[in-house]
Amino acid sequence: MGRNPTIQQSSNPAIQYSNTHNTPTIGRRFRKKPLAAAGLLGIALLALLCFGSDIFARHDPNAHGDLLTSRYLQPSMDHPFGTDKFGRDVFSRVLQGGKISLTIAFCVVTLAMTLGLLYGTVSGYFGGWVDAAMMRFLDFFLAFPAIFLILTIVAVFDLNHWYLIPILGLTGWMEAARIVRTEVLSLKERDFILAAKCLGFSHVRILSRHIVPNCLTPLFVAATLKVAEVVLLESALSFLGVGVQPPTASWGSIINDGRGVLLRAWWISTFPGAFIVWSVVSFNLVSDGLQQAFSPDR
C-alpha cells in the first residue's frame, strides 16, 4: 500500500517509444509566415525579371533612340517605364541594372560571409590572446570608413564595376565575423562540444561538424540583410559615379541620370528607386522569416 508496485518491478525495462509525432520541416514552418513567403516570392519575381531581361525587355538597354522623337517619352505600352534623355528604354535599363546589382550583391555577400565565418570561428573557438588580437584587428577594419576607402580606390585606379565585388567584400565581413564569434563563444561552452573533445575528435572536426553548422542560422539572417545593404551601397556608389560606369546601367546610375530632370521626367529615377525598395524589402522579409524558421527547438 502506498508504494506503486510497477515502479519497483524490473531494473531496466525495455521501453517502447512510438514515433508518432511529426515535427514540421524548416520549409513548412517558413511557409507558415505569409510575410516571409511574400518576401521570397518578391525575390523570385525580381530575379526572374532581371535575369530574364533578354526575354522581357524589348529594347537594347544601351541603344540610343531617335534624339528628336524618342527623348523623355512618358511610360507607354512600348516603353513601360518611359525613356531617358538619349531615348533609351528605362525598363530595359532597370532590368539590366538589376542583373548587375543583384549579381554584385550576391557575390559580395558570399565573399563577406565566408570571410566572416572563417574569421569568427577561429577567433571564438581558440579564444585567449588569439581572440583578443583578432578582435582588435577587426575593430581597426570597423573604424575605417569603408565608403571613403572605396571612393579613393575607385578614383585612383580606373576600375570597372566587377572590382566592386572584392572591395565591398573585403570591407563588409566584420559584422558576420562578430556574429559568428559571439555564437561560437556560447557554443563552445556547451556540453556537446566538451563531449566531442572527450571523444577525441580533432579541432577540425569539432569546428566543421559541430560548431559551424550550429552558427549558420544567424549567419544566414545576416546574409539576407547584407544583400539589401550591398544593393543600397552599390546604388549609392553608382549614383556618385564611381560604381557601374556608363553606358552600362545599374539602379544607382539610372537614378543619377534622372536626377536633373526629376520634375520633367519623374519616371527615370522613380522606377529604379522602386526596384531598390522592392529588393531591399523582400530580402528583409525573408531574413525575418529565416530567423524564425531556422530554430528547430523554439
Binding site: 556547451r190 556540453d191 556537446f192 566538451l194 563531449a195 566531442a196 572527450c198 571523444l199 577525441g200 561538424r209 559541430h210 553548422p213 550550429n214 528547430p296 527547438d297
Partner: peptide
C-alpha cells in the same frame, strides 16, 4: 583518450542539435 568518457549533467546541451 577514448578509454575515459564523461556523461554530462544537462541532456539538453549534451547533443549536437543538428
Amino acid at each position: 583518450r577514448q578509454k575515459f568518457q564523461m556523461i554530462f549533467q544537462n541532456p539538453a546541451q549534451a547533443l549536437n542539435p543538428r
